[in-house]
Design a protein around this nucleic acid. Structure first.
Lengths: 210, 210
DNA sequence: TGCATGTTACTGACCGGTACGTCTCTTGAT
DNA sequence: ATCAAGAGACGTACCGGTCAGTAACATGCA
């Protein structure tokens, strides 16, 4: 009742006081994701965060610096979430690869889903050398390498082709979701990936029911 | 020699004088595609076009109006190119669907390829009611309907699922191309789609060579 | 005292958009 | 044939607002 809930959060035992820097960071991440990098100005960020502009620039050299930091964190969280989903899937190689697909399929159903921040940034920031692009590039390379590894666990002739196929479907689902929503082609993500897996496993076609 | 070549072009018989409006339009389309909507200001457009700002605003009510017009034209050209590719593929249903895939696969190899303007715009313009978004949405719906039709020509149990699978792969290839280029997962577009088609046709797995 | 933060006020560049003057080409009357 | 007037097309110069970013100083708290 006496506590200002906007300046501290209750993390179990210890209430953590959020610094101006972390408030800027969290707010920026949210706004950048929801509305885009270029659409969000620093004035809006500091206003939403309830801090002032000098506090932003004391913590981050520039807006680009803030963008890169936000992307780095999003990439880290995204990677951890995927690894957790794979780990939770157990030991069966097919289940593990399908867990990645399922992970994204679940995200597509969230109302607040607005695509992949990395992919969005790559489109918004067309300057080749932009620090944000580098982060996004590394993130996608890692994701591809992980999918390659998962596909290699399966006993298929061309694991890289299977992995790329799954990645294409996932990225395609994310892309089409922007325009046509979860009821567009994105709804066929799981069935399509299951089909690709079955195809590469060389089994008989049996996954035609969505 | 006496003719000012920057103000007229030789179209066979009749030299056509390019108006300020058309110069604005052509320049804007190019810049919007190459660098993005938000990254390109009206000042840059009129400078590149060699005209002045009032000329832009005499022809278009606003920048958003210009954006929508550019998108409309790009959508029209894109649709015509796809239909031409399908028509050139002949009568075999499988060839016709594959022609769509091949069409995009070819575009991915162009050095100047920078994704689909519709998809890019959907990410850049996050405001739900933006006129540009409406154009992009209609374009994607049309493309999906066309792919549905092509898939239905094939004798498969679930043509819509096949069509969505192909769309996911195409859109995924376009999306990943932004970050990882033509040597990323995008290189597996044709092989993946061929696999999906074979899968739905219920034939034996035989398309594992890229 | 010392540190994190807020306050105020500012910069120069750029944004989308516009009021108004100028040029040229066409048209019609003489 | 000549000239004047209208109509479009176009440019000059500018608007208010917003952008990212900063300097100088005040405040509150440990």
């Amino acid at each position: 009742m006496a506590e200002n809930s906007s300046e501290s959060v209750d993390c179990g035992m210890e209430p953590i006081k959020k610094t101006a820097a972390s408030k800027v960071f969290d707010t920026a991440r949210d706004l950048f994701y929801r509305r885009g990098i270029r659409a969000v100005g620093v004035d809006e960020i500091v206003f939403e965060a309830g801090v002032t502009k000098p506090s932003l620039y004391r913590a981050f050299k520039s807006k680009d610096d803030l963008v890169a930091a936000c992307l780095q964190e999003s990439a880290k969280e995204g990677r951890e979430a995927i690894l957790a989903a794979v780990a939770a899937a157990g030991d069966d190689p097919q289940d593990r690869l399908r867990a990645v697909v399922r992970h994204f399929a679940d995200k597509l159903l969230c109302p607040e889903f607005r695509g992949c921040l990395m992919s969005n940034v790559a489109i918004e920031l067309s300057e080749p050398g932009h620090p944000g692009r580098v982060v996004a590039q590394n993130c996608k390379k890692e994701m591809r390498a992980l999918t390659f590894d998962l596909a290699r666990e399966l006993n298929v002739a061309e694991p890289e082709l299977l992995a790329d196929g799954v990645i294409l479907a996932i990225e395609g689902a994310i892309a089409t979701h922007h325009i046509l929503g979860s009821q567009g082609p994105a709804q066929s993500l799981v069935a399509t990936c299951d089909g690709l897996i079955e195809l590469h496993l060389g089994r008989r076609v049996a996954v035609l029911t969505q």
